[in-house]
Amino acid sequence: MYYEVFIAGAGGQGVLLMGNIISYYAMLNDLNTTFMPSYGVEMRGGMTHCTVIISDEEIGSPVLQEVDNVVIMSPFASQFTTMVKNGGILILNSSLVKSHQCEKENVTILKQPFNDLALKAGNSKITNMIALGYLWGVTKPLPFDEKLLQQAMLGILGESKKKFIPSNIEAFIEGYQLGEREKI
């Protein structure tokens, strides 16, 4: 079993939270996983990204040059479309990312307006969870289990933010169903 994803966006979009949840979920499945965030001088609003790897074998480098699955959440991060491998999957948040360039071959490019979907649901804060669900539905890193996802979210968010979990799960499922319907 092996899975890799690279998620990039602007600080504050919850990009790291998305990666964290995938990794934590993998841990709950007793798999090896690495989560490597960008770190640096930028705080809120700066560019941020993370690489998540899941494997049933020992994971070498947590940093990758090219990745099977790439999610771009903001125009700031469009430069990272080059991270996708030939034949990989590139997911763009079309609410914000209006144009893109990708010179790789055979890349499946999927566009979804995650911000608009969140606004339609009446909660702009769940944008990242819709995107995470969508990524999951499209790329299926692991079988989706609502209980485990709850546990993963609790593990990452902690008790103090427990009250946000139901709305996050709901958003995740909305995205997940959307992703599952993609024909790729």
């Binding site: 964290n20 841990m27 996983t33 690495t34 965030p37 770190y39 947590p62």
Partner: peptide, 10 residues
């Protein structure tokens, strides 16, 4: 190093 310090793993 910064990679080992910043990366998360179980």
């Amino acid at each position: 190093d910064g990679m080992l310090g910043q990366m998360k793993e179980p």
